[in-house]
Simulated assay, not measured.
Amino acid sequence: MTRITLVEGDITEQQVDAVVNAANSSLLGGGGVDGAIHRKGGSQILEECRRLRASHWGRGLPTGQAVATTAGRLPARWVVHTVGPVYWEDEYDDRAEQLASCYRESLRVAAELGARTVAFPAVSAGVYGWPLEDAARIALGTVAAAVAGPARELTEVRFVLFGTAAYGTFEQVWRGMGAGGEGRQGQD
Rank of each mutant, 00 (worst) to 15 (best):
G141F: 07
L140A: 06
A23E: 03
E112V: 10
G72N: 15
Y92N: 12
L107Q: 03
R158S: 11
Q44S: 15
T12D: 00
V173S: 08
A166C: 04
C102P: 03
L61S: 01
A36M: 07
W78P: 13
A36T: 09
A119K: 06
A115D: 09
V143P: 09
L46F: 10
P131Y: 04
A22M: 04
G163H: 05
F162M: 09
T5S: 00
A36R: 04
A166K: 07
Y128C: 00
Q187W: 13
M1F: 04
G183W: 06
V83H: 00
W88H: 14
T164F: 07
Q187H: 12
Q185S: 12
V19E: 02
V118D: 03
A148H: 12
R59N: 15
V16G: 05
E105K: 15
I11W: 02
V67D: 09
Q14I: 10
S101L: 05
V7K: 09
V118P: 12
A66N: 07
E13L: 14
V147K: 03
E182A: 02
E47I: 15
I138D: 03
G29L: 12
R104I: 05
V109H: 09
F120A: 01
I11E: 06
Q14D: 13
V143Y: 06
H56L: 14
P85H: 02
R50E: 15
R59I: 11
D10K: 05
P150Y: 14
W57A: 05
N21Y: 05
P75H: 14
A111F: 11
F159H: 08
I37R: 10
W88M: 14
V157C: 10
V83S: 01
